[in-house]
Amino acid sequence: MIFRLDERLLFPDPALAEPDGLLAIGGDLSAERLMLAYKNGIFPWYSDDEPILWYSPHERFVLHPPELRISKSMKKILRTNVFTITINRNFAEVIQACSAAPREGQAGTWITDDMIAAYINLHKKGYAHSVEVWQNNSLAGGLYGVQAGDVFCGESMFSAVSNSSKAALIWLCENSNYHLIDCQVYTEHLLSMGARMISRAEYINALHNTPPKP
């Protein structure tokens, strides 16, 4: 059963999601609703020709920073200092670039104009963050996502230059205090970097009961 949302700020139990993770339809992209969703393991994912669709997958593809694996070739690239990395320097440019670079296996973008406006609003309120990778003063790659406690809910990444999005993810793992990075969608290159599947129950437990930072 797919639930229809109204003006009230509430979601059904994520365990009631369909086999594909679809939980609810409707509502809006206000900062309050978005943050309520992320704190409960739910996120919006839809196209321009669809209503707002809310998902809570039965499994999550995640990366625990201590489990990060960096290939020898990537370590060599990082040692050359070919990239300069910043955080929250240009969130709008990162999300725009991600919208022009569909996720692996997808023909079009799910980052609609309404989504861009909503996440820029989240960024202004301090909930959404970007990592930018620069080469010769040009944006070479990056990623953005939403902070829910000590979990970073990764939304999308892009590479205009080879390995730049990997550099962004490595920086995020090594230079932040996130306990868990939610990668959402399985990809081979994230698997090679140490990401793995966990159950929804494990993921929601991480959201609500994150162990203290060392």
Rank of each mutant, 00 (worst) to 15 (best):
L63M: 02
I70F: 01
D28I: 08
A118S: 06
D113C: 00
A140P: 07
S56V: 12
C98N: 02
N121A: 08
A97D: 14
W54L: 03
R103T: 04
M1E: 13
L36Y: 05
T187H: 00
V151L: 02
A206P: 02
G27P: 10
V94A: 00
M74G: 03
L36E: 10
A118T: 15
E132P: 02
A100K: 15
R200K: 05
Y46E: 07
Q184H: 11
M197I: 09
Y178R: 02
A37Y: 13
D114P: 13
E7K: 13
G26W: 10
P212M: 07
I42M: 14
K124C: 04
G41K: 14
Q96N: 15
K72C: 09
W45G: 02
A140K: 00
M1N: 09
T187V: 07
G21Y: 06
N137M: 03
M197D: 11
L63N: 01
P51H: 07
F152W: 02
L9E: 05
G41D: 05
R60S: 01
E67V: 00
P44M: 07
A148S: 10
R89L: 11
I70R: 00
Y203N: 09
I198Q: 02
F83T: 09
F3W: 11
K125I: 01
A24S: 11
A128Y: 13
E188D: 15
A206K: 08
A92Y: 04
R8F: 02
Y46I: 04
R33N: 14
P102R: 15
Y178C: 02
I204M: 06
S159R: 02
D49C: 00
N177R: 12
E32N: 09
V185K: 14
P211E: 10
C183Y: 14
F61T: 14
V146S: 05
F83R: 14
N177E: 08
L10F: 12
A100L: 14
L5E: 12
V82W: 04
L34W: 04
S71Q: 06
I25F: 06
I170T: 03
R103W: 13
R103F: 08
R103I: 01
D114H: 14
D113A: 15
E104M: 05
N90C: 13
F152C: 03
A107I: 09
D6M: 14
D114I: 10
T80L: 15
V146R: 09
R196A: 09
Y186Q: 11
